[in-house]
Amino acid sequence: MSTNIADHVRTSLVRKGRWGIGEILFWLIAAATLFLLPERHLILNEIAIIGLFALSLDLILGYAGIVSLGHAAFFGLGAYAAGILAKHGFADPLLGLLIAAIAAAILGFVTSFLVLRGSDLTKLMVTLGVALVLGEIANQASWLTGGADGLQGVSMGPVVGLFEFDIFGTTAYAYSLVVTFLLFIVARRIVVSPYGLSLRSIRDNPLRARAVGIPVNRRLVAVYTLSAAYAGVAGALLAQTTQFVSLDVLAFHRSADVMLVLVIGGVGYLYGGLIGAIIFKVLQDVISAWTPQYWQFWIGLILVIIVLAGRERLTERVRTLWKGVAGRTAKSPEPLPKTSVREI
């Protein structure tokens, strides 16, 4: 009897770590686009990068419940780090990624102590503030960043010494896709680990998480740092594959866009960012073909509609669809319980 239960417990815990058919298909299709859609590689490259960026946001928003208004800070820092590095002769893309990841991780680690200090409101203020400060620095340090003109003269060496970047974006897309895939695997592994479980528990109920002995702040610092590094890599990919960096990488709309991307695809199951990136780019393509100028208005409208229509419910639907395809349980996050100490 008890061994039966033990087996059941094991399978049901370990099952979450297994890849579903839908997931395998998803990545196979992604790989296939490398060969099947050669004329779309430029936009696919952007999708992979935005997807990775949104994935990094999902790590803190979906798995730790931190609402950030300034995730672009890490994206931008990564982009500038990689860009500046390449401009000064260190043209190896992987080295650029590594440095960008480290730089962003350090920024994430340092600012996490401020971010985690207060209420949701404080988090909004600090994250927004950090991004603004970085934007201002990038603007003023024009000797280093090129300021408002952008960072010119970024030229990249071949990836792993073999694959030169080409004008069709084929190497770029393959490179971004592989990097995104590898980082996705790591993230996926993390969220089904005991550490990932503890993050979800913190998101759902920090009070109880503490009461089972979880060092809440340390866990959040760790995931915030990791998420920053991911965002930094995404930024670096953009800088390397477009060979240009402008102040735009740090702009507020980047932080808002990535939230929208994640929210479209659904928060808290990792694929949301990737699926959201696809939908977002397609939407952007369609809308800007139709009315190029006021894209921002449509973003705003989509955000408002998504929220009014019930984001949770929409997400649930996407996730159920996904569950059908992926053939495994994807857990949905609850809205954060608003309990104060007084109500214990």
């Binding site: 049901s12 815990l13 770590g17 089904v192 680990s193 005991p194 550490y195 479980l197 503890s198 528990s201």
Partner: peptide, 23 residues
Amino acid sequence: ETIGLAVSERTGGGRDWWRVTGS
């Protein structure tokens, strides 16, 4: 998952980010 969480934490597994829960 809830009980597994508490047990993992107690045994120091909560810092373990590479092992699949329940292995």
